[in-house]
């Protein structure tokens, strides 16, 4: 269960964002849509605990994360939240598999068989010992989804996952995200300006 109330964030007193309240039940996905500069990424960072709000509360699964210390938020995020970034990023000194192992280590969830499951469900198991830099663009995107879901998070946050993709790939990626989320029992919140995604979500919030 996800619930935010009266979220507010100021960037150095000049730009301030007031966000609409969010209320999501278990197994509900959400699309947050809005044009550039309206605070989409800020909202995602607030939800992920990467930023602290100035006022308001964020309740994730019974935990008000605005009341946690930095260290506690880091741990909470590692265990409960997976993030898919607009551009896939990895630790480049590690292979795909080692990247996933690092994510598991940081989320306190060591399980090699899960890595194999995820990589095969994303059809990149044969790339597990490759350096992520050597993957194709599509493979990178799938590997970054693997990073987001490897710790069986309750919530997957995706930041503009499709904005740079053509229609065909946009379709493919959003379907993949939704499938992975439901396969692994996670909720999905996508933040985007990409109107093509509207039809894939029952619940939408416009910023």
């Amino acid at each position: 269960m996800i619930k935010t109330e009266a979220l507010k964030f100021n960037y150095n007193n000049q730009v301030s964002f007031n966000f609409p309240d969010i209320s999501l039940n278990k197994n509900e996905n959400l699309l947050i849509i809005g044009s550039s500069g309206i605070g989409k990424t800020t909202l995602l960072h607030l939800l992920a605990g990467l930023l602290q709000s100035n006022s308001g509360s964020i309740n994730l699964y019974g935990q008000d994360i605005s009341k946690l210390t930095q260290h506690q938020i880091d741990k909470f995020r590692g265990q409960n939240i997976g993030i898919v970034f607009q551009k896939p990023h990895f630790v480049n000194s590690l292979t795909v598999k080692e990247n996933l192992q690092l994510a598991q280590y940081l989320g306190n969830k060591k399980d090699d068989s899960r890595i194999v499951d995820i990589l095969s469900s994303l059809d990149i198991l044969d790339k597990e010992n490759k350096n992520p830099k050597k993957l194709s663009q599509g493979e990178k995107q799938r590997a970054s989804i693997a990073m987001a879901i490897v710790n069986s998070p309750k919530l997957i946050l995706a930041d503009e996952p499709t904005s740079s993709l053509d229609d065909e790939n946009c379709e493919r990626v959003i379907k993949l995200l939704k499938k992975q989320a439901s396969d692994f029992n996670a909720q999905l919140i996508v933040i985007t300006h990409d109107n093509r995604l509207k039809k894939h979500f029952k619940k939408t919030i416009k910023l």
């Binding site: 990467l50 741990k75 590692g78 970034f85």
Partner: peptide
Amino acid sequence: YEMALIRTLGSSR
């Protein structure tokens, strides 16, 4: 960016 990524994966500072 790698550092930020590692933090989002749950690493403490």
